[in-house]
Amino acid sequence: MIDTAQMALILDALPDPAFILSRSGKYVAVFGGRDARYYHDGSGLIGLYISDLINADKANWFLEQIARALATGNLLVAEYELSNRDVKGLPDEGPKDPIWFEGRIQALNFRVDEEEVVLWVASNISERHTLEVRLRELSDTDQLTGLFNRRKLEHDLKLHHESLTRYRVPTSVFLFDLDNLKKINDTQGHHAGDQIIQAVAEICRCALRATDFACRLGGDEFVVGLPNTEREQALQLAERLHERFRKELSRYWAGDTVVTVSIGATAMLPEDHAYEDTLKRADRALYVAKSMGKDRIVWL
């Protein structure tokens, strides 16, 4: 049998820190945290409250998790970040990236000083979180341009269609491709064509608003989504983007043919059953733009 002294040594040797926290956020006891790569000695926390150490918004989040664990009695797992800005008394400047933790919170069946308490085990998962973010970026990003890819586009358009259906939040969409790119590829090679596609992506990054998103569907076909944007404003943005394309792509020639852009534009409509209906309408608008002589904007 393990006696009390041995159990204390075991708890003290835990690599991740384990806290006994009261409902009001008081540090009742601290165990472990022996992995010196990630943690400092936490014994000085005993007797303090989370609100003594952490700024109000983040402290309230911790108290909410404690309350949830106590209410359900089940193990609660939550990921959270902490940075210099969250901790009282530290300067805002510091490590650029926050530290990410996984908290495992379990209600305990006893009280301390008449208060309910939980066990909170905190594990530093910053490396794992960074890897997960990078993997998500790779899965959502077109390798040639760095723009979002079709997978990310479909995910975002679905969310914006739901916003239109539930809350009447408008979203406009541009579908465009490059006029005469095939001639560049045929005469100068696909490397030259790739450079033009990359130039288009850079124009999108510079010309669009922070709330807009641009995606490469494949080949020389792109989609731009403009959340919370109705027809008049969307057309103004389309004109500015189109003019930017004309100016910056004018240096790409194949004989006497210059690369231009045709844009099909539309907005999500209440009668659209899904985002695919919006894309189909934008595609029809693009077809009309092409048939009218290219290098123009058509709204349907």
Rank of each mutant, 00 (worst) to 15 (best):
R209M: 09
C206E: 15
D295R: 03
D283G: 05
A192V: 09
I196P: 02
I10G: 09
V87N: 11
D142S: 00
I66T: 03
S43L: 12
I297V: 06
W100I: 10
L76R: 04
H273R: 14
I2T: 14
A78K: 14
S43Q: 15
C204W: 00
K88V: 08
G44D: 10
P15T: 05
R85V: 12
V223D: 00
S126I: 06
E132C: 10
L82P: 03
Y252F: 15
H161R: 12
E221Y: 00
L48H: 11
P95Q: 12
L9H: 10
L241I: 09
A267I: 05
A265C: 08
L237F: 07
V169Q: 13
Y275G: 06
Q233V: 13
D12G: 12
V118K: 01
H273P: 07
L286N: 03
P270F: 02
L147R: 02
V28G: 11
L75V: 13
L135I: 11
A238N: 04
T130G: 13
A214T: 07
N124V: 05
D179A: 05
F148C: 03
D86A: 08
Y80T: 07
A122F: 03
L138D: 06
D256G: 10
C206F: 12
L175P: 04
K290R: 14
L217E: 05
D295W: 03
V288K: 09
N84W: 04
L249D: 05
A69T: 01
D16R: 02
H273L: 11
A234N: 04
L90E: 07
L249I: 08
Y38V: 08
P17N: 07
R240S: 11
E162D: 13
T257W: 08
V224A: 05
M292L: 15
I105T: 02
I184P: 03
L208H: 01
C206G: 12
P91L: 09
Y38L: 08
E137R: 04
L300T: 02
F222R: 01
K26Y: 07
A210R: 15
C206Q: 15
E115Q: 13
D177T: 06
R134G: 13
G225E: 08
R281F: 05
E221V: 00
V118G: 01
A18I: 10
R296S: 09
T145N: 01
A201G: 12
C206M: 13
G146W: 00
I66M: 02
D177Y: 02
T130Q: 15
S43F: 06
V261I: 13
D156Q: 12
N149D: 02
T141W: 00
R104C: 08
A107V: 07
R216Y: 01
R85P: 08
L157T: 02
W120E: 03
T165R: 14
A234V: 05
V298G: 01
L208W: 00
L131E: 12
D272C: 04
D194N: 05
E116F: 06
G218Q: 08
G218R: 03
F19D: 03
G32C: 07
L90G: 05
G293V: 03
T278W: 00
K290H: 14
V258F: 08
G193I: 01
V298E: 10
H129Y: 10
S43Y: 07
Q188E: 11
D140F: 06
D113W: 04
S43N: 14
R231H: 11
H160Q: 14
L9Y: 04
C206N: 15
V258C: 14
L237K: 05
Y27I: 03
N180I: 06
V223W: 00
W299E: 09
E271T: 15
Y287P: 08
G44C: 06
